[in-house]
Design a binder for these strands. Structure first.
Lengths: 216, 216, 216, 216
DNA sequence: AATGAATGAGGGTTCATTCAT
DNA sequence: AATGAATGAACCCTCATTCAT
């Protein structure tokens, strides 16, 4: 059972289609995504992008005004469209949580988030590196993160707490634990993007570990 | 109680002293560290470094052959000296774990690791960004990580498992859980290096959460 | 009383009509004139011209083969059609100078020339800048200037000299003085095209000054 | 007899020396001056400048930050140093005009100004072209022209008017006539910088024409 | 005829690196 | 050892021009 549809690839493609850009420009964007992710934004020249995209340098600048524009075009869907979209789908999807046990819920939610990261690993790798040094990207991230509708999730935690399935800690501590569990699987992927993991198994293990703890 | 001495600052300075370099060169290294961390390696020019260090550009190239040499000089202590040193100290320090309960042990070990990261945040920020795109750094990291004496830690886990204080899961799963718990506190610091956290409280909370789990 | 009709605007439009070009192309020419004059030829892009003209870039190249062609199209009427036309009209107009005194004649001729410059300030500004650096334009100018029918004017000066109304200097010296007097009013306009001057008054003053001199 | 020393070449060299720049940088400046004057600022590439100066492209940017900086460096001495210097020398030089007749004075002053223009023809050609389209240069010119100490000159005119040697017109009309007379000799030089003229003869003729007028 | 996306040579500029002082 | 002016490859970007639609 899946609460939400986080398939970011399709959302990314959607957002590309919404931009109404030509195939050529899509290939430029794809080349940028690939090279920025593999080599880093600063280590990628617009000439390289043009070559990989199979177009002339000028074409790169036709749609996106400059190199920073390419970065924005690559990250913008992730930052300003996909994250909110996913978040709202999530919020909607959890309106009727009356069924599952918390463990199952936890596994589902973690699997979704992790799959999201895996499906968008290139973008997220770029985002990680740039958020660390690029003030503009950092601010955009902060703004979008601040908008995330945590209220719904909070209510849900309260629900499970009232059901006696979730420890009575404050929201942020529980959220932090969940994020940490996901990080333990995802951080290695950030550094080694070619690795593959079994998301279902990982989320199952993570959920179990999270809930049971390390006590025998 | 602290098992090991991870105070990396002193170790870093030690390694500097071992290099037997002049004050001038130390200021170059310090400037590189600061700027690489704040702006990123690729966004920092050697001229900027020289200016912040208060020396001429040529001086930067006197000791360190090129810009990559600066990166190596900044990261090398962390990669090839400090990590092993800390690891061995850790290995030595845990040879007689006969005292504390697992919770206390867990808190101590996590506090040490987290303090290590916090004390060396600039280097680690650089390391994170460069490991993602720099093949050479990535290989160095892999080699050093492979050398880490996990055997000792594994024995220790077995000891606590035999004591009935630690769940009977395989080593990597337990280690992953611990690392994840630390990540939940450290990852934000990577992105916002000016934030401060209460490491003692964080490690205490993390240890408790880890062991008890989210079950009420 | 006006000896000649120098209204260049109408002559310019005439020459446009003679070219038998479409409204679209006229707007391209108008946009080129405006932008070349305001920003300079080299600082104006064909894209800018197309935008101001409200057409596509390709359309600019339909009629005029390249950017240089635009410059030629803008300046050509001034260089090769208007100047000779005006000159010949002038020559014809002065065939019966039996009326006015020299002062009146001088004022009229200066007013005409100055009005000519003012009516065509944009073209003349372009001409000035390009003649200074563009060999082709410079040669065209030289050729056209060489063709000017000064003979008629020379005869006229002789007539006034015989009448005892004009000092007995050589033609070029007298011409130079007249041109200098006009320059003193026109050069500022070249630099500040938005300024306006009272041509009638200016020519009157100039003529008086020229004839009387600075002696009390 | 010369009232002032307008030899701009020496003043230009002085200002270069005051800048305390190397021979290499002087050659860059000289090359810029030559090429900007011959081809125009916009038609000259920094590569061309470097080649003519016999240095690498980077060297051009060492002292002068960008191409605009080269233009400023070339024009600044003329705009902000030489003009005021000449003007003040002029003001000082005329403090004791008790000797000469107005004709002689006029010839001297015109000869000085014209020699000034001839000595600095390259810079003035650049100035003319750029003032027409470059807002920054235009503003600089306006500011410097506004500073010119015309008061002294005005007094002098009054003196000659009281002496009965100068017509009783307002200052600006007289000044305009003088400037126009000089223009009639200088404007051709602006367009054909390789022409040479006999400044002494030109100023003599111009002064005579100005004073006597065209009346026989 | 009109369009405008695509082209790529060429321009301005940066910056790691060198070397004479 | 230290300096910093000089270097030039390589970068980002522009824009005159073309051509398939």
């Amino acid at each position: 059972m899946r609460y939400v549809n986080n398939n970011i690839s399709s959302l990314f493609v959607e957002s590309l289609n919404e931009l109404n850009i030509s195939e050529r420009q899509k290939s430029v964007l794809q080349a940028s995504l690939t090279l920025f992710s593999e080599q880093g934004f600063e280590n990628t020249s617009t000439t390289e992008i043009a070559q990989l995209a199979g177009v002339a340098v000028g074409t790169v600048y036709q749609q996106f005004n400059n190199k920073e524009g390419l970065l924005q075009a690559v990250l913008e869907p992730v930052i300003t469209e996909v994250i909110p979209k996913v978040a709202s789908e999530f919020a909607n999807g959890i309106q009727a949580p009356q069924g599952p046990h918390f463990t199952e819920f936890l596994q589902n939610i973690m699997q979704d988030r992790m799959q999201f990261v895996i499906d968008n690993l290139p973008q997220i790798r770029i985002l990680v590196r740039e958020t660390m040094v690029n003030q503009k990207i950092r601010n955009q991230m902060k703004m979008e993160l601040a908008k995330l509708p945590f209220a719904k999730l909070k209510e849900l935690f309260v629900y499970y707490q009232e059901q006696g399935q979730l420890v009575d800690w404050e929201f942020s501590r529980i959220l932090r634990a969940i994020i940490g569990a996901m990080c333990s699987y995802l951080v290695p992927l950030i550094f080694e993007p070619n690795k593959t993991i079994d998301v279902a198994k990982a989320s199952q293990d993570a959920a179990e570990t999270l809930i049971k703890g390390l006590k025998p």
